[in-house]
Design a protein around this nucleic acid. Sequence first.
DNA 1: CCGGCGGATGTAATCGGTTGCAAGAGGATT
DNA 2: AATCCTCTTGCAACCGATTACATCCGCCGG
Lengths: 331, 331
Amino acid sequence: MQHQRPKIGDVARLAGVSTATVSRVLSNPQIVSAETRRLVEEAIRTTGYRLNQAARNLRHRRTGSVVALVPDLSNPFFSQILSGIASVLAPAGYNLLVSDTRAEGGNSILRYAEPSRADGLIVLDGSLPSEGLSPRMPMVLACEWIPGFDAPRVKIDNRQAAMMAVNHLADLGHRRIAHVAGPPGNVLTLARLAGTEQALAARGLPPPQVFAGDFSLASGRRAGEEWLALAPAERPTAVFLASDAMACGFIGEVQHHGVMVPRDVSVMGFDDIELVSHMTPALSTIRQPREAIGRQAAQRLLDRIAGDDRADDTVLPVELVLRGSTGPVFR
Amino acid sequence: MQHQRPKIGDVARLAGVSTATVSRVLSNPQIVSAETRRLVEEAIRTTGYRLNQAARNLRHRRTGSVVALVPDLSNPFFSQILSGIASVLAPAGYNLLVSDTRAEGGNSILRYAEPSRADGLIVLDGSLPSEGLSPRMPMVLACEWIPGFDAPRVKIDNRQAAMMAVNHLADLGHRRIAHVAGPPGNVLTLARLAGTEQALAARGLPPPQVFAGDFSLASGRRAGEEWLALAPAERPTAVFLASDAMACGFIGEVQHHGVMVPRDVSVMGFDDIELVSHMTPALSTIRQPREAIGRQAAQRLLDRIAGDDRADDTVLPVELVLRGSTGPVFR
DNA sequence: CCGGCGGATGTAATCGGTTGCAAGAGGATT
DNA sequence: AATCCTCTTGCAACCGATTACATCCGCCGG
C-alpha cells in the first residue's frame, strides 16, 4: 500500500541497492555497472518514481529557473521576446519565470532578484532602480538597459535605426519631418530621438518637431490630435513614431478625420509588430528581430551562469520594412 | 569574514537563540516574545540574511510556483490573460512559470505537469492530450478546455457570444452572413460556429457560409481572398470572424482591393484586442474580459491548491462592442 | 603468497530551513 | 505548598535528494 509518491529510498529497497546507487543511475549512469543499472531502472519503472526537483536543487544550490522582468506582460512586443527566451531556456533545463515589473507592488520586484529564487535574470525594463539588483546574480539586459549598469546587453542600434527611418522619409522628398518620442528619460527614447536629429542635420534639414509619447496606442492617438490641430500648411508631411503601437494610434486618429495616409502624411513606425503589416495602409517600419533578441539574451545568460564573465554587448541588425504608409510628398 | 551567504544558523548564533526561534520569527512572528523577536530581527539585519526558498519549499513539500500552459506566448491575447494571472499569484506568494506548448518539444510539456515542479497548473490550451496530465495536480482550465477532462473551467459563453454578434449583424439587415471559423476541432471553434448557426436559424436566415481559419492574421487574410473571389452578387454582406486577428487580416485584404468596410461588407471580430479599436474603421467585436479571466483562473487555482474540490465552471460575461466596421446593408 | 590498484557500491554528512515534542519559567488555582 | 496552565524556547528529526569518503572485491605483478 503505497499512498505516498515514491522516493529514492523506495526504489533502492526494491532494487536491493543503496540510495546512492539509485542517485548515480539518475545523474551519472555510466559509473554504475550494467546489471545494477538495469535493476534500478526496472525498480524505477515499477514504482513509478519521479525525481523531486526541489530536493535536487537544494543540494545543488541552484534553482533551475530564470526570471524575466518585463515592463508590461500584456504588450505583444515583449511576449514575442519571451517566446524567444523560452525556446532557448527549455532545452537547457531551465524554467522561465516571468514577472511584470509594473503590475507587482514595487519592492516585490526584488523578490525575484534573489539567488534562492532564480539562477539568473533577464531584464527587459530599463527603468528599474539599479541599486536593487544584486550584482552577484548572473544578469543580461535586453532591448532596454540601465545606464551605467554593468551587465551584457542584447540590443539593436537604435540611433542607427532611427536614421534609417528618417533617411527613407527624406529620400521621398519630405523636409518637415516630425518625431513622436517614447516615454521621457527612457534610453530608447533618447537614442531614437538623437538618431532622428542626427539624420536630419546631416542632410541640412530643419530639426524635427517632437511630440510627446510613451510607446502606447493612446499616446499615438494624442499625437495625431496634435498634428491635426496644426494649420494644414504647418503640418509636417511625414511623421516617424518611436513605436508601432503609437503609429497605429496616430493613423487611426488622422484617418478618422479624413486625412489620407500616405497622401496627406507619411507615417513610419518602429518594431514591426505582426499586426501592422495587415493594416490599411500597411505600415512602413523598422523591424526588430524580437525572437532573435530573446534567444540571444537567453544564450548570453546561460553563458554567464556557466561562468563566462565577458560583458560585451550584442547588437542585432534591424531591417527597414517599406510598405504603404510612406510615399512621396503630395502637392 | 563572512564570504558565504548567511544561513539561519548564523542569525541564531548572533541573536543568541536557536535556529528554531529564528525560523519562527520568519514564518510565525506572533508566537515569539516581543523582546526575542526584536533581537532576531536585529540579527537578520546585521547579517543581511535572506531566506533560502528552496529549502523552505522542500520542507513544506511545495514549490511556490504555478505553471501556465499557453498555446502561443507571442499572441497578445494570451499575454493579457497572463497579466491577470500574475496579478493574483504574486500577492499570494506564487511564482508564475510560463510554458509555450507549441514551442517546446512535445514531451517536455509533461515536464511541468509534475508535482515537484509546480503546485498547480493553469491550462490555456484545449488541444493538449488529457492523458499526460496527472489528475493529482491542482488544475484549472481557462478559455479553451479539454472535452471530458474533469477540472474547473473559467470561460465565457462562446455560443451565446456568437449569437450576440450574429444578431447584431442581422439587426442591421444582413441576410447573407458568413463565418470564418477557428482551427478545426477546437472547442471554441465549435461553440462559436454553433452559436452562429443557431442565431441564424432562430431568425429564419440561411445557414452561414463558412470559411476555414485558425485564429491567425494570415488565415483571415486568406478568408478575405476567398471572399473576393466570389462574384460580387454572391458575396455575403457581413462576415463574423472567430478572432480579431483574423478580422484584421480580412479587412486588410479586402480594403487592399478597394472594398469599403462597412459599405461593401460588415465585419465583426471576436476578443477585442487592444489594437482593433484604433484601426480604420474601428472593429466591432465581442469583448472577452481577459484580465478578469486570468484573475479568476488564478483565484480558482489557489482555492484548489487550498483543498477546495468543487469543479464547477466560472462563466464570465462578454460585451458587444459596436464600432465602425459594421453598418446597415448598402445597396 | 601478499601488497596494490581500480571499479562498484554503501555509509553518512550535507544542502537550509521547519516543526513535533518536551522542558522550563512564571502565574493562577485549590 | 502542590498542581495545573500557559507561554517561550530548544532539541533533534525531517523534507528528498547528492556526494565525499570508506569499503569491499577481484585481479595483477612481484
